[in-house]
Nucleic acid binder design. Sequence first.
DNA 1: GGCACCTTTGCAAACGATTGCAATATTTTT
DNA 2: AAAAATATTGCAATCGTTTGCAAAGGTGCC
Lengths: 350, 350
Amino acid sequence: MFAEYAIISVMKEKTIKTLADIAKMANVSQSTVSRALRNNPLVSQKTRDFVQQLAQEHNFSVNATASKLRTQKTHTIAVIVMFDQNTEQSISDPFLMKLLGTIADELTKFGYDMLLTTTKTATGDWNNYYFESRRADGLIIVGQGEHDPRIEALASNNVPFVVWGTEFANKNYTTIGSDNRKGGYLAVKHLIDKGCKNIAFMGDIEHNELEQRWLGYQDACAEAGLELEPTLRLKTDLTSNDGYLQIKNYLEGKHPKIDGIFAVSDTIALGVMKYLHEQKVAIPEEIAIIGFDDIAMSAFSSPSLTTVRQNTTTAGELLVSKVLKKIENKPIESKLLEVELIVRQSSEQT
Amino acid sequence: MFAEYAIISVMKEKTIKTLADIAKMANVSQSTVSRALRNNPLVSQKTRDFVQQLAQEHNFSVNATASKLRTQKTHTIAVIVMFDQNTEQSISDPFLMKLLGTIADELTKFGYDMLLTTTKTATGDWNNYYFESRRADGLIIVGQGEHDPRIEALASNNVPFVVWGTEFANKNYTTIGSDNRKGGYLAVKHLIDKGCKNIAFMGDIEHNELEQRWLGYQDACAEAGLELEPTLRLKTDLTSNDGYLQIKNYLEGKHPKIDGIFAVSDTIALGVMKYLHEQKVAIPEEIAIIGFDDIAMSAFSSPSLTTVRQNTTTAGELLVSKVLKKIENKPIESKLLEVELIVRQSSEQT
DNA sequence: GGCACCTTTGCAAACGATTGCAATATTTTT
DNA sequence: AAAAATATTGCAATCGTTTGCAAAGGTGCC
């Protein structure tokens, strides 16, 4: 008997699920409830308080789906994380994750939800899946990627979106990204200042951002009057593992001597250091090394890793604020973010 | 003139946005279009093909919001990542990120979208925000957390959800988690086997999962007849930074000597190793060290880090499959996952 | 040809909120 | 005290799908 009562009471509670239910209880119209819950000044303070309290008591939440349908706004941003299909670089790439975290925080700050997808699994047609189908009001695309036709498709479909990456000459969309060329320049100039003469570049210049860092490398070399030695560029995926392998291959083979390494990411650099350790190569005395990103780990390696810091906080803030502006149809511009050289032990003898 | 035509044509294209539009073009009813696009066998193959092609040509996607409203299913799972408010442990915690990646992949495999939130910014009322308001069909909660009242609230509200973490005695919800106690046991037993007699435990046993690892520590000690020395437990946050600081404090102060360290996470362990390096303490000769998680970096530290691997892949798969089952109202059970000892240099003299 | 029986299609009612406009209550002004 | 102005409320249409049910179109059988 008691059990039955309990069930009935639960069921009753479960039926209170729509504005209309609350309206009936409050003896006002549905519209009034709707307005009251949104704090619309059209309804008197008294009714507002009353309705809000009633809703709270009954644990009522407005159905977001219905609201979205009616208002034609989802208050959701789809964040697409692109990864290279071939490498093992996974969603755990520390730099991207940090960025993702900032974006998440920033979006919630503006009352937006975040729909997350990784490219590996995403459908090919972002425009249709996310925008046309009204799953999201806008898109943020991150990931150190190569030129992706899907992005072009978005641009031509008039979807509000911003990209984390490099600015292109003939871009027709908005890009937020670090000043990679300057970063590369700073890194290599630093090594040169420390006396390095033969500096390896480790990274894959097929990626647009990394190509910029390569250009920065060249800038610094040119400035110092160092000649460009093509064999010093080692194509390397963005993983510690590949960093380890590539430097191993290089040093084991018959190649020009090197006294410095610019790795395009800290993860690569840490892999490289692993190998150098194994081979008892002194860092930085024999080979100095510098990374890129300033991931959390870099301060805790031994020796700690000199690197070029990307400003993830500003990055996240800008990505979000720009895409929201774009949604409001305001004009937005691409932006290059400053980078900062962080000198640690891997390039500086103590 | 030409420009005007162009604009008009664009506008025209933009008006094709609903089933009704397609229906008109195809000269069939809305219902037929709806069925055709979902490949419903009720409509003839011919019409299906025709309508589908028409839709594709016009770049039409069904409005997901309307569909959700009508079907009362969102095909979305909210993933809530909890972080300790006090520590700096951020969304970039490598282990959680790895887990998140698996969850993301797994969800898309089942055609579900993933709504991501971090606790720091999330509203307090998960039930209302995500479930009652129909933003998601179910929830997955991850994060090495302390006992959280919000989880209890979910359970009593009959929301479909699963938690990554520890199973409790009086749990009334489903939990997927590693066998932390066994992991702790394996770790410490390993150190003991290697000859360690005074093993520090670094972690915060306020966290349920970590408490289990602490119990495992005790199991191993008891088995080996080692007496439990309370001062050997160093309360440490899940960051490299705190690992560094805590071991520094300990070793600088007047404390019992130690010859082994069990850190509850690899990030802590890496911070610890940093300090030991600085102090020229030989690893593992003077102090052996073992971590937990097996994050990517652990294989690339010097020395490489012995650790207890958590199976993120299975974890992600289970979390997803269980929550989906729960949504279908099928009964689900908690599950403890096997862990694996990964022996590397930090505990094994070469 | 008439009848029963499948296939295919279309009608129209939901799903649950929001909102322009009209209607009613309340206050202010004269 | 009536008129005008303002503050509150409610009506009803709408957002774009999905789906039970009824209707129409086809086929085969006697």
